[in-house]
Each structure stands twice: as C-alpha cells, then as structure tokens.
Amino acid sequence: MLNTIWSFFIIISIAYGIFSGRVENINDAIFSTTENSVKIIVTLFCTMCLWSGIMNIASNISLMDKLCKVIEPIVNYLFPEYKKSKTIKKQISMNIIANLLGMGNAATPLGLEAIKNMQKESKDKSKLSTSMMLFILINTASIQLIPTTILAVRRSANSSSPSDIIIPVWISTICAVMCGIFCMKVLIKRGR
C-alpha cells in the first residue's frame, strides 16, 4: 500500500508538473528536498537519541513502574495478548504515557522498540497482528493532553484565550480514535 502511494505521488507530481509547465519547480524540488531532509534527519537524529537516553533512565526507575500501574487496566484491555509479557506491556505503557505528556519525540523510540518486540512474539512475522495495528493506530492519533505546539501558535497570533481549544481537541481525538478502531475491526473481520 505504501508502495502504491509512494509511486503514485511521484508519478502524478512529475506528470502534472510537466503538463502545467512547472518542470523547473520539480527540478528544484528534487535537489532541495534531499538537502532539506538532511536538516530534518539531523535534528530528528539528535532529539531521538536524547529522548531514547532519557527514557532509558526513566524505564529503570521505580517511578515509571508506578505510572505504568495507573494505566495498566487500559493496556490490559486494549492488548490482552501481552498481559503476561512484562517488557512489552511496559514499553506500550511508556509509549502511551509519553504521548499523553506531549513528548512525541520520546514516544517514537519507545514505540519502535515495543513494536519490534511485538513482532518477535507474533506467529506470522510477515504480517501485522491485530495488536500491532491497534498500537500503530493509537500512535497515529495525537493523544496528547496539552497540544503545546498549537497553543504556542495561537498565542503568537494574539488569541484572546489560546487554551480554549483544548477540550475540542480532546473530543475530536477521542472521536477519531474510536472511528479508527471501529473501522480497523470491520476491515479485519471482512478480510477473513
């Protein structure tokens, strides 16, 4: 699927670019995107290393165990398969906690570790198991408690009360996650 989307993006961009006389823009983009991606990757690289480090300290202290206990019922409910495997459950819990606290940079390395371990446990390694899909789906929904970036944007644009979008954001997020999970369950049922 990503294979199709990726090729589709490239074919349609170049075809439309030529058709609408923007070949120069395309040439520019081909070279400037690689340059830009270096910038993005370097920043990403450093922040991800930093957060993996910080989160490794966090996973070795008792504070994290306490926090994980708090959300344990939710994790058990969503991922009953991993009730018994402690490491995976802890990684999932920490990923969710990091997401809730708005530390997307910290959540990603934790999530990648968790999904790798989930793959090790799954029977068919060439496919995504239901739990793995659910886990990625949760990560594609922005489940943070305080949407800091957009609050900062609103503040800099002179909003009279920047934070009054927080509750609408929560409602929309919950609505999106529910629809996503529902849709996934339907698709999996139909696929069998």
């Binding site: 699927m1 594609t140 696929g191």
Partner: peptide, 23 residues
C-alpha cells in the same frame, strides 16, 4: 512498518485515514 519490514498495511492506512477524516 519501515522498522518491521512488513508489507500489507492497507487496513491500517485506511483505518488511520478514516480516523483523521472523522476527527
């Protein structure tokens, strides 16, 4: 999926996009 090297992620992509639209 890049770190897992698995294919066949279409159900996931549809669900995520439907979730976005619903949001």
């Amino acid at each position: 999926t890049g770190c897992l090297k698995v294919k066949k992620e279409n159900k996931l992509i549809y669900s995520a996009l439907i979730a976005d639209i619903a949001g």
